[in-house]
């Protein structure tokens, strides 16, 4: 029973994603001009951005917690969330490019939303460059936490606010019909909402796996005395820190 309590959300993620894939491809879809069956991409492209935003929010939260608590575990979790968030963002761009090719006729357009997400990805790539350029793990944790909070504060206006102010090809912007105009068809809604939850849970699961692997790696390296740290190695090894 306790196992069920601990792991129910992982099971839920698997069930929801299997449902998303089966129902997403087999359920009837509204026959709209131009969009046609490519509308099924809604279950994959849009949840990627939900997942990415959620994970980056989580990463920012861990960084804020790190600045007040100063435990390395929080820094590792922040980095893992950002890494999985970046991965989902790249998947979001790829699925979006595919969709744009089918409906707008080009892999990449000069759309403010595309610009915003490209800027967001560049900022988070810079975050990993910054992390890897600092050897001292305590200093790396502190500096990258500060950068991560700034990155999130710029990422949100870049991806959500700026595109809404100008014309965009995306639904709901610049005179295009909003999101709800498409999924007025309730058949789509009963697949879309579970899909969002399923992908977000999968992202959280991937984050926890990445973070746990990183914690083990850090411990091993601390034991071998490979990296430079002002914290004594014994203290890093001590499980109370993690």
């Amino acid at each position: 029973m306790s196992i069920f309590k601990k792991y129910w959300w992982k099971g839920l993620s698997i069930i929801l994603l299997i449902y998303t894939i089966i129902a997403g491809f087999l359920m009837p879809s509204p026959a709209l001009p131009i969009l046609r069956d490519s509308i099924r991409n809604l279950y994959f492209h849009v949840p990627m951005w939900f997942g990415m935003t959620g994970l980056l929010l989580g990463s920012c939260y861990y960084s804020l917690r790190f600045l007040s608590k100063n435990t390395l575990k929080l820094d590792i979790y922040a980095a893992a969330s950002a890494r999985v968030g970046l991965f989902m963002g790249i998947l979001g761009i790829l699925t979006g490019m595919q969709w744009a090719r089918t409906t707008w006729g080009a892999w990449w357009t000069n759309d403010p939303k595309l610009m915003g997400s490209a800027v967001g990805l560049l900022i988070y790539l810079a975050y990993f460059v910054l992390r890897n350029s600092i050897d001292d793990i305590d200093r790396r944790a502190k500096v990258s936490a500060v950068f991560n909070i700034m990155a999130f504060a710029i990422f949100i206006p870049a991806i959500f606010i700026v595109p809404r102010l100008t014309d965009s090809l995306h639904p709901g912007n610049g005179g295009n019909p909003g999101f709800s105009a498409y999924d007025l068809d309730s058949n789509m809604r009963i697949v879309f909402y579970p899909a969002v939850i399923g992908w977000i849970l999968l992202g959280a699961w991937m984050t926890s796996l990445t973070a746990r692997i990183n914690i083990i790696e850090t411990r091993i390296r601390a034991g071998e005395g490979i990296f430079h740290s002002t914290t004594p190695h014994k203290e890093v090894l001590d499980s109370s820190i993690f």
Binding site: M115, G116, V119, L122, I123, L125, A126, V129, L130, F147, M150, I154, P157, A158, V162
Partner: peptide
């Protein structure tokens, strides 16, 4: 330069 260029694009 690497860190600040993406920040300054908007």
């Amino acid at each position: 330069a690497i860190l600040s260029l993406p920040f300054i694009i908007p």
